[in-house]
Amino acid sequence: MKLRYAWLTAVMVGITVAATTGCGGSEPESPAMPTLPDGAIMLTQNQPNRFEGLVVVASAIDASGADISGSDGTSVAEGHWVDVDGTVEIQDRTLRLVATWVDPDPGEGDGADMSKAWVVVEE
């Protein structure tokens, strides 16, 4: 009988722990979203975004930088890897990469990675 109570207690404790911490372990901790300067434009990984007459896309985003490319939408894209706080020239416009955020749970599907890069178009 004591063994039965011990099992029961263990099960109850297990359920309580699972309920309070989440089954399957804790969620991956999301990196903090960066503080952004005014005018920063958000780019989501592999999603071409249109702004100020440009079509710009960020890919291979990580904590240190991102691959930024684009054009005016009708000519061949240009661009390259940029470290955070670095710049890239697209159609004679200077884009500064001001921050990145890496999706901690990007999923498996094509286009599912929601990592972000923020750029500012410099005057």
Binding site: Q45, N46, S59, A60, D67, S69, V76, A77, E78, G79, H80, P106, D110, G111, A112, D113
Partner: peptide, 11 residues
């Protein structure tokens, strides 16, 4: 070159 580079996680 950017226009010819393959991108990861993409279709």
């Amino acid at each position: 070159p950017s226009a010819q580079r393959l991108r990861t996680g993409h279709a």
